[in-house]
Design a protein around this nucleic acid. Structure first.
Ligand SMILES: [Mn+2]
Ligand SMILES: [Mn+2]
Ligand SMILES: [Zn+2]
Ligand SMILES: [Zn+2]
Lengths: 132, 132
DNA sequence: ATTCTAGTTTATAATGATTCTAAAAAAGTG
DNA sequence: CACTTTTTTAGAATCATTATAAACTAGAAT
């Protein structure tokens, strides 16, 4: 299995549950955005094995901490995650409540002119809200 | 009272509670960012009158709908609001969990090159995360 | 293989921000 | 005042997320 090494290298034991979640998250052509509930549904459909909700939460947070997922800053009643961990931005369709990737080339360079003493920039993210 | 007209013009009855919340929110030199709980505390300190939490929620949402407040897209367990309703951006200090305004002039023009059929851009917001 | 230990999974409970409910109070109108 | 509509309120309900603590498992040691 190709994810065993990845997990071991991160100090995470390659358990059956984690490997199955890896498959659901990373064995695909395109990256995607998801909430925990959407992921739970996807797991149910794709895997012949029940994974408890607590484990889904634990795993997503562990993967986020290791940099395999990122959280998208958005106001929603549920937290959105992204399997695309490159620097990029988002459209947020207010009606459909769906996220769409905006690559850096779709936005152009963003230069932050203001500086805050003793702090450094960790990330710069653009959220473009869409309406009809 | 200077907020009576403002409320009437929005189709909101100028109740004692709403006027008091207006004072707390808008009778100041600088705009600010807040969560509902922070606002509740501020109200307690500033006003000699209890306002129920439900009313604080109702009022904040009513003001948001009327464009007197805006919600800041950020991942936190509590929703952040802003009394600065002009187009602007934010630093988010991850350690202090505090927001700092970034004026448009601090960021420069942002040109979104990608278009989505049938959708138009409602807002473009930049979130710059800060670490030590 | 057997034992040991730290790490993991799990069902379930707890938490807490937000929303809902429905009755009482207040605002606006004539 | 009498009447209607809106608003406030305490408390309950909701629901995403986190905590708990017991059972299980992976990896390592014996
Ligand atoms: Mn989280
Ligand atoms: Mn809201
Ligand atoms: Zn994305
Ligand atoms: Zn602001």
């Amino acid at each position: 299995m190709k994810y065993i090494e990845k997990l071991r290298n991160s100090g995470l034991r390659p358990t059956k549950q984690r490997l199955q979640i890896c498959e659901v998250l990373f064995d695909r052509d395109k990256t995607f955005h998801f909430t925990i509930n959407e992921l739970e549904q996807k797991i149910k459909k794709q895997i012949n094995n029940k994974i408890s909700l607590a484990t889904v939460y634990n795993t997503v947070h562990a993967f986020e901490k290791k940099g395999y997922l990122k959280q998208i800053p958005i106001n929603s009643n549920q937290t959105y995650f992204d399997t695309n961990v490159t620097d990029h931005h988002h459209f947020y369709d207010l009606k459909d409540e769906k996220l769409i990737d905006l690559e850096n080339s779709d936005v152009g360079p963003i230069n932050i002119l203001k500086k805050i003493d003793g702090k450094k920039i960790k990330s710069v993210e653009v959220l473009v809200k869409l309406e009809d």
